[in-house]
Design a binder for these strands. Structure first.
Lengths: 197, 197
DNA sequence: AAAATTAGATGATGACTGTCATCTTAAATC
DNA sequence: GATTTAAGATGACAGTCATCATCTAATTTT
């Protein structure tokens, strides 16, 4: 049956939200179109009224998650004007984040799969999303020069995503908790290189 | 037809080698049993004489790749007794490594997928393999105390795997090359924290 | 050399997948 | 209120997959 314009819009948003969670939890290839639609309370048939393909849904869902993450990071950093960097590190490198991939960082959850994807749109979306986070991290970085802040932001972001990924890959072992704790400790201990005179 | 014992052993090794490459290139779920067997010059039917399941093959193939990587890192570090760490960094964070996943780091290639896997054996294999690399990295780290060396090794390993994963996820964009270059530069610039008196 | 064993080929199974055609019914438009 | 439109359900399509049963021929064992 036909539904109202509002209901249609709500359904579209719901599909995108559910997809963003399921994709992060089980991978782009690990979730079927039918399952996403069922989780949104619909049947599989109507899917193609909303999206041209599963690939198109993946791109839009990833883009949406990336935007939301950027907003979250922004407010998290502004929680502590003195040391926004410490807030970001301490929120990211936790067992809770490791154990809730569905609502966590999309780069640590889907980075490997996107790297293998033949869909260049996904690479573009990931690059734009990462640039957004890098902007926030760069501003929160204490290094003296802009070049160094940008460099350190890239290094720190790589450490964060890498540590979360490895902690998940080793979950259930002692090493998993160590990776989170020690990477956080290490990042907090890193000294600014002395200004070259 | 039946084949000789040597041929059988050679075929088993070939299946494992091919699987190790295909899995890294396309993901554990991205390759079929039939394709692995065909790449090894066999048909799909004989597969279950070698392995109990695809899952069992994945575990054994990952374990083998992990061992080979540990050997490679060991010899790479010993290339330069003065600064083995710099050798490891400069070999890992390159465009060639990013563009040849089939023969590259298994942790950056399959970390996300293994993190989602319900097979605890894979988590164990990854943990053991990572511990091997951490041992090499710890010995090559310049920090004064053993605790700090271990911590820095974990941080550096997270940075390496994370940077490679993100560089692949953003391949084709400017950011991809920057992630490799800047992370390497950043890791080389990191100062040892001053000894707490 | 005969008998027993088994590596690997062929083929089938049931399950799952993305996508599309069709139908129903309610909303939107006139 | 009548007509048009389209959201979403139902069902089907062709393709892929992991796994297994069966068959064969060559190696091992006796």
């Amino acid at each position: 049956m036909k539904t109202s314009r509002e209901t249609t819009a709500r359904n579209r948003a719901k599909i995108l939200g559910i997809a963003g969670q399921l994709f992060r939890e089980r991978g782009l290839d690990g979730v079927s179109v039918a399952e996403i639609m069922a989780s949104a309370g619909l049947t599989h048939g109507g899917f193609y009224r909303y999206f041209a393909s599963k690939e198109a849904l993946a791109a839009e869902a990833c883009s949406l998650v990336a935007q939301q993450t950027e907003t979250d990071w922004h407010t998290a950093r502004d929680t502590d004007a003195e040391d926004g960097l410490a807030v970001l590190l301490s929120r990211y490198l936790t067992a809770e984040h490791r154990d809730s991939a569905a609502t966590g960082c999309i780069y640590a959850a889907l980075g490997c799969e996107v790297g293998r994807s033949s869909d260049d749109m996904l690479h573009q979306i990931f690059a734009e999303g990462l640039e957004g986070l890098l902007g926030i991290l760069t501003e929160a970085s204490p290094e003296p020069s802009a070049t160094e802040r940008r460099r350190a932001a890239i290094g720190r972001l790589s450490s964060l995503a890498g540590a979360l990924m490895l902690a998940r890959a080793t979950k259930g072992t002692e090493l998993s908790d160590q990776i989170l704790a020690e990477t956080r400790h290490w990042l907090e201990s890193i000294q600014t290189p002395p200004p070259t005179p």
